[in-house]
Amino acid sequence: MNEGFSIRQVFEGKWTQGAIPLVLLVALLLIIEIAAPGFLTGETLALLFANTAVLFILATGVTFAILLGGIDLSIQAVASLASVMLAQLLPSLGFAAFPVAILSGLAFGLLSGIVHVKLRVPSFVATLATGGVVTGLALWVSNGRAITIEEAGREKTAWINATIFGLPMVVLISALIGIVSFLVLRYTRFGRQAIAVGAGEPAAWAAGINVDRTKIIAFAASGMLAAIAGVVLAARLSSGSPVLANQLLLPAIAAVIVGGTAITGGLGGVARTAVGALIISIVRIGMTFVGVNIFLENMVFGAVLIAAVAITIDRSKIAVIK
């Protein structure tokens, strides 16, 4: 561990780790502005934010799980189920379909958390399993098909697609979620305890923190935010489908890690995730712009994920890397 060359030290400095993503984001914005002047205007930026909204909401949820040193691989399934529930229930329940869809996400998040904590199953397997359970349910409920939200239902989802003071509603929703999550992590007892558990579980336990409860709440939050993302996505696309959000798992996790939250836990937060989500979004736009085939997107994100993990991970925390 003592190979003291300076690049590694720069990367391992705490403030630089927080600053690098931000610098990267600004650099990316400048590059695009130089390549295509007029990018940094209110309208295109509003569009950029609107396109990032769903990704950001999903990523905020996973941030809770990753801050604890865990991972949630069920978010895309939960989001898809929420979209199916919304599309299915809008005609019969009206506006009540929104809370029902979101609460279903909360319920499956709770399930993930309880399975992970009480049965002591590693979180990636617990959430892989609950993700399978949820996907199966979504397929079953929707009979394996995409469900279109009809005219009557679209009236009830119109508010999500509305624009207020020139800002799309989705941007306001995701900003609200971002701010609440930020405040929860920074100023509530749960938030502090979550960071403590991520930073060092034995010490947190010894300090009297209810580690199990903290973890379960975090996974429940992750599930609920995933469901909100699914609902927003369904409203934007006017349809719900059991595979609607499948392409979002990797970008969401990549957004968290690229933003500078370490998968080892305890370091990072929602603000970093916001930066990470914007970076992912800009890279995606940039790739289309430069002419990279859209099918290669997954490849780029996969590579970015590996690189970001390699840089942000705190290796002193893991005795054996499995």
């Binding site: 490849m299 780029v300 590579a303 590996i306 890397i321």
Partner: peptide, 20 residues
């Protein structure tokens, strides 16, 4: 070589393979 947990390394490889 990069010393990262296998679930992260292979999560990345999953999408690299799929994209390719």
């Amino acid at each position: 070589m990069l010393r990262i947990p296998s679930f992260m390394a292979t999560l990345g490889m999953w999408f690299i393979g799929l994209g390719l």
